[in-house]
Design a protein around this nucleic acid. Structure first.
Lengths: 183, 183
DNA sequence: ATGTTTCTGAACACTGTGTTCGGTTATAAA
DNA sequence: TTTATAACCGAACACAGTGTTCAGAAACAT
């Protein structure tokens, strides 16, 4: 099945809307951006917007898609050591910085991370430590990551991704390992 | 200055509005509650609402006030060991559970905690570790607390406040101390 | 050149916010 | 018990935003 060629107008419209949203988010933050703002900036008809996306959030998510795909790829790649979930964090710092998504997308990054961590923690934990629920542990590790990321973005990337990753591991790894191995 | 006696009607109205908001939050979550909902439930005139509070969030905050005052008291109390910020967390777990505020108020708890932690961390850190900004550290410690609290509330308090506090310390203390003492 | 798809933009119904104001009622205090 | 006043009511209003519809214009692929 040869993949359907996409009408130029569709491509163009979606691009305009995504760019407009990006700009507006940088200018005043996602929470304050309205559909009206976006279509004015993009110079696109109101009905056109709703022909493509059912809401602002859907438009936002459409821009997040490439990043998500990249993580998916990375996780299924051979070079990834499944014994150490920590290997993931540096990549994430780097990619999120490059993507410039701002912290709106972080909600989705968090969900993604949580699911991944939960799988791996369930396996890695010895039975006697199930008195600390793996769900709680996964939630903590993912949330901590998001916390550092949020600070990093808020302060406009004052440290390198490598440094941030180092701090993250120093902070989170000891406590987590202690609980996993036997508390 | 003898404290002004409050008109019964004022007391009554504020109470009705706060109760209505509480109920509605439990029923459908803060995000979905409107001013209209609240005044309908409280059976209070629209203009009356705005005579008392300038927005829904202000109404929410007014309910949070007693909790905040309690922390303020605790912190200025003699029995509190200023060398160890960790002593605070158990009280917080207990009080937030009692208050049943849900996670909406957590945003404000976080701000409060952050400010407090930052003060104490700045003093407790040796100079050579300033390569990890104290603001980042405070942000992490506060965020981790909120993360555990969020999970706890979401899962309807499956563990005791004491147990939660124990886990929190086990997770967060090692990494934080390591960085503070010399990384 | 032609048939199809997409875009346009104005109109519409809807939900919610926050303000104003004349009239009513509850309250505190004399 | 009266009375001045402070609080409440509710309807009306202006406003901003959402999401839908539809007929006509424009861009597109072939």
């Amino acid at each position: 099945m040869p993949k359907q060629k996409i009408d130029r107008r569709v491509e163009r419209t979606r691009q305009l809307l995504q760019n407009a949203l990006s700009e507006l988010i940088l200018e005043k933050g996602y929470e304050k951006v309205t559909v009206q703002d976006v279509i004015d900036r993009a110079n696109v008809g109101r009905s056109t917007f709703y022909a493509h996306f059912e809401s602002l959030e859907q438009l936002l998510l459409s821009g997040f898609e490439p990043l998500r795909a990249q993580f998916e790829d990375f996780l299924s790649g051979a070079e990834f050591d499944h014994e150490s979930p920590w290997a993931l964090s540096l990549t994430m710092f780097q990619q999120v910085q490059k993507q410039q998504g701002g912290y709106i997308t972080l909600t989705h990054v968090q969900k993604f991370l949580y699911g991944y961590l939960l799988d791996h923690l369930k396996m890695g934990m010895t039975k006697r430590n199930k008195n600390v629920p793996p769900e709680l542990l996964a939630h903590y590790v993912a949330s901590s990551f998001i916390a550092l990321m949020t600070w990093w973005i808020d302060n406009e990337y004052p440290l390198s991704a490598e440094k941030m990753n180092e701090i993250y591991r120093q902070l989170v790894e000891p406590g987590t390992m202690a609980i996993m191995m036997g508390g």
